[in-house]
Design a protein around this nucleic acid. Structure first.
Lengths: 271, 271
DNA sequence: GAGACATATTGGTTTGACCAATTTACCATT
DNA sequence: AATGGTAAATTGGTCAAACCAATATGTCTC
């Protein structure tokens, strides 16, 4: 087991009095950093307390004090016998208000896609510039999982693997905001799509195209070509945007047709 | 010794999952109540941990977890060997998780500035492309207000005018996400700066430079030069970033100097 | 009375143990 | 083969006792 000592020296203890740094603060801060950096994502379960205390080189009570601190800030959540899980307060604090607005104002979706085009482009560019070996490994893995899910045609796994892949890119960009925001936005959109369009099966051959775009992003980052990575990410979003618009149009057509049928034959059936 | 058992039944554990009440939560909330009721006034010292744990009928580790929770909320403050004291300021808790993250992890500030550089650059570019006449009018007005506030040297008005100006740019970009995010991030940073650096008066001639940068952004948008607008916005953020870093360095220098003075002449004067 | 030193107090940390809830694996029943 | 239940392993929750280090307090000396 690798033992990585906690930094205890000049932790920013904002108290005015002269304070000896508490080890629980150091631990809490270390865990916070892992969450910020993305190595601990919302929904993840942290290692068991005994294990984690070994890994961090502190005793279990100290680790527990740190966890309690994070729990009181709402960043983690523990269940006896179950484990301790990372919550998504960071992301939700930015996007709780947006959740319901998306449904009410469809043109927000267009704004969102435009925003994501910028965000994911930048994320890919930075990732190509800055990714460490560990980042690349994680990216490979996420890509492999994504390919599997696509091959298996498992919508649920595909969706979560998609999020994981984009999250890995965001993580490799080494900017906490980019990582959390892109993940949050993607999740938001997927929920919204699932809500408004059923399973989006209306797109027949999109699968292989999407997979090719993901591969292009992955390759450009691996080969450390920032501009190519940005271009690939933007192409990807452009494709999603176009496909989505098309799918919406056809859905609207179907709906009007259905409505016409309704009004013609059974006007009382409101649905 | 009076033993008053802690109520453990239906403590308001806001977690969504089915949760067994933790004893440390019960203790924390019991202490909180004492503080709110006034039996523990700000400045008071709580009983020693060993004593208090007896009194409450819980073990010392559990009591400590509770105290750590309160400490992370800023309600109490402990000094090794000294004791645990009730803090005098109760209403200091900022509930935005990003806010205290910024304080605890300084590199997050850098991420934030990097992100803002992208965001505000894009906002300015889009604003230059898309602003309607109404947008431009609003922008003119925001700029005028900002100039006034700068001239009057009113920090409070200046800060809110600053936010309003960037918000106007965001609105003119005609992307709801850009507008809200850039405003939210600016507000977040301003709060953080005010918190960590006092009033940031340490920057002497920055005022006119900042004003010039705002003018450049304004002009480029008005003349509908997207690239120039983006460049101006990026220059603005670069300047803020550099100035902030410099100011932080000098603050650190001042602090070390003060510490040296302390250790030289009056080592007993802690605060 | 002022300063220095010894002692007691008090929070900080660790070790080790046991309990209780949950999860997991396995097995028998249908 | 699917289902249901039970036992074992896992994991957070709690406690006890001990030692360390910083602080506070009392005492002693000059």
């Amino acid at each position: 087991m690798l033992v990585l000592p906690i930094e205890r020296f000049i932790l920013p203890t904002p108290q005015t009095k002269l304070q000896v740094p508490r080890i629980s603060d150091a631990v809490a801060s270390a865990l916070e950093r892992r969450i910020l950096e993305g190595s601990l994502k919302p929904g993840d379960r942290l290692p068991p307390e005994r294990e984690l205390s070994l890994e961090l080189g502190v005793s279990r009570p100290s680790l527990r004090e740190a966890i309690q601190k994070l729990a009181s800030k709402g960043m983690v959540q523990s269940r006896q016998g179950g484990g301790t899980y990372v919550t998504d307060r960071l992301e939700s604090s930015f996007f709780d208000p947006w959740q319901d607005m998306m449904g009410a104002h469809p043109n927000l979706r267009e704004d969102m896609l435009e925003f994501r085009r910028m965000l994911e482009g930048q994320a890919a560019e930075w990732a190509a510039e800055r990714a460490t070996e560990a980042d690349l490994t994680r990216l490979d893995q996420a890509f492999a999982t994504l390919a599997e899910a696509f091959a298996a045609d498992d919508l649920e796994r595909r969706s979560s693997a998609d999020i994981a892949f984009h999250q890995a890119v965001g993580e490799a960009s080494h900017n906490a905001l980019v990582g959390h925001l892109s993940a949050a936005l993607l999740r938001l959109m997927q929920d919204n799509i699932r809500l408004n369009l059923g399973e989006l099966k209306s797109i027949p051959a999109a699968g292989s195209l999407l997979m090719g775009q993901h591969a292009a992003i992955h390759a450009a980052i691996r080969e450390r070509k920032p501009q190519a990575a940005r271009a690939a990410a933007e192409t990807h979003i452009d494709f999603v945007r176009e496909t989505l618009a098309q799918s919406l149009r056809s859905a609207a057509r179907r709906e009007t047709a259905a409505r016409r049928l309704n009004t013609d034959f059974s006007p009382s059936t409101i649905s």
